[in-house]
């Protein structure tokens, strides 16, 4: 009997310990839920694919602004568009932005598309990072801090647009490289990003996100037939600061149309919700089972009729 009372006390202790650890469960601080309307002063860029001529000026401007390494081939070398087969160029550790050419079935002339970080309103990269290396500013810029990054590359897995790139070639300070919305050099002073300013065709428009959505709708409405009636980025992954309108279906120019229309973190919430439950319920549950099993074993041991039972007393 003594041992059982002891176990009971232990059961309480263990359950209490469970509750305590439960309190340490993941705080859902960053998990902001889909009802978050976005910051009001949130900035953005509207990319009009019908205006882009593939001059790569934005690529050059970005390279200069962010002091990135010189490209292997100069930015005015347009032959780069011809060599892409199934491996289209993407932003990598040497370029925050790239322009690709697509031969869309719905258009006689080729269509160009600029790729960079879309600065999600609820960034998957940010929510997936276990050392909090990402922050989002009031302007909507998603920034990365290399000082705490461990190099696990989960953000690369998480980003639905496959934007973050890793410096695999560096042994001692490999970091994630991605477009920073020119926040440190320009946005913080209210100036538009370098790529936007450099564009000679006005294909990129900088402004408040809400205003850009209005402009996009207007352009689609005023120029009947010129645009597909869709603003890419309005809802993708919970909404992005960079928005796109185009004259051809988006999937013909490399946009992923299967990207969820809700924040990526929503898919992880199911799991995050069970964590505190397991932490609090498991200890009591298994301690209880242990107690039951032990009590039954003791009862069997003490039963003279079962003295010959094959119960393994030595191991107990």
């Amino acid at each position: 009997m003594k041992s059982i009372r002891f176990s009971r006390r232990r059961l309480v202790t263990i359950s209490l310990a469970g509750v305590m650890t439960g309190l340490l469960a993941p705080l859902q601080r960053n998990a902001r839920g889909s009802d978050f309307p976005g910051y009001t002063e949130s900035k953005g860029v509207l990319v009009d694919l019908t205006r882009c001529v593939g001059c790569r000026t934005c690529e050059a401007a970005c390279n200069l602004e962010n002091q990135l390494p010189a490209p292997e081939r100069p930015f005015n070398d347009m032959s780069i568009f011809n060599e892409q087969s199934d491996h289209l160029r993407r932003p990598d550790d040497k370029a925050f932005t790239v322009v690709n050419r697509y031969d869309s079935g719905s258009s006689v002339s080729p269509v160009y598309r600029k790729i960079q970080c879309n600065h999600c309103q609820e960034p998957a990269c940010l929510t997936s990072c276990f050392v909090n290396a990402y922050t989002i500013t009031a302007e909507g810029a998603v920034l990365y801090n290399h000082q705490v990054c461990v190099g696990c590359r989960t953000c690369m897995i998480a980003c639905p647009f496959s934007v973050p790139a890793f410096c695999y070639s560096s042994a001692f300070s490999p970091q994630i490289m991605k477009c920073n919305f020119c926040y440190p050099t320009r946005l913080v002073q209210g100036r538009p990003p370098a790529c936007v300013e450099a564009c000679p065709r006005d294909a990129l428009t900088f402004g408040e996100r809400a205003e850009l959505l209005r402009i996009a709708r207007q352009r689609i409405k005023r120029n009947k037939g010129r645009y597909i009636n869709y603003i890419y980025g309005e809802n993708e992954a919970g909404g992005t600061s960079w928005l796109y309108i185009a004259g051809v279906p988006f999937n013909e120019v490399g946009f992923d149309e299967d990207i969820p229309k809700q924040p990526i973190i929503n898919y992880v919430k199911d799991f995050l919700a069970i964590v505190p439950m397991v932490l609090t319920i498991w200890p009591g549950l298994f301690a209880g089972i242990h107690l039951l099993v032990k009590r039954r074993a003791t009862a069997i041991d003490n039963d003279p009729k079962l003295a010959e039972s094959d119960h393994d007393k030595t191991a107990a």
Partner: peptide
């Protein structure tokens, strides 16, 4: 780092 320097407690990898 996730233990002592910088915390991202809402991330699955943190857990």
């Amino acid at each position: 780092y996730p233990m002592f320097v910088s915390f991202g407690p809402a991330a699955v990898l943190f857990l």
